[in-house]
Amino acid sequence: MPDLGVRASVCARGGRKDLTMPGAIMFEFPDLFFTGLFLTVQLSVLGSIGALAAGTLIALFRISPIPPLRWVGVAYVEFFRNTPLLVQLFFLFLGLGALGFRFWTTDTFESIFRAGAAGMALYHGAYVAEVIRGGLLGVDKGQIEAARSLGLSYVQTLRYVQLPQTFRATIPPLGNIGIALIKNTSLASTIGVAELLQAAEIVESRTFRTEEAFGAVVLLYLVLTIPASLGVNWLERRLLVAR
């Protein structure tokens, strides 16, 4: 991508000679780029924790012996997976905002940020739920019977027998969802979170140095996502060997 951008700029501007190092522009606008990076990381971390919590809860609903809980679980998963994250973010920020709900804060920036983090958690939680449900159902039925025959309750069996095994088996797919989440934090720019993409857009509009601004952000995203996918691949291989 950065290469493509640089070549295009040469063409568009009739051969500019003074090309800077890719990414150098970051240090001209450190407050925008690095604050953006920090917000992206914050959104990713909070979003992942939220998605894991929401997803686990919904997965438990999905396999619950109580039918209404199961219905809630299915409705949640299907609704959040089959509507765009962007619409969900607008709904959380503008829609709930119209009701006067500002995520328990009066600070506008904080409220936007929280709407963004909530959107990340709710949307990715639906995918996490399906992965964890698969993991829970993957635990051998005999083990569940063994646990119940020892007198462990339904909840204790979930807690001590099924969930611990599930988390191990689901680390690779959960990692993939995490990577998608990092990339999807860029959508928070549309409701006004000054994360990485927003930083690029601001710098672009101030300087018209499009390739440099976007090139820098491309680099920063790669710095986040490439190690993450290498990590997921590594874990996947290790877990395959361990089994």
Partner: peptide, 25 residues
Amino acid sequence: ETIRALPVLLLIVYFGIKGTALFRP
């Protein structure tokens, strides 16, 4: 691998801003 490591929105915004200039030649 590079494209899959980047947000779609980034690509869309980039082409939204640069599209015409990029493809003019």
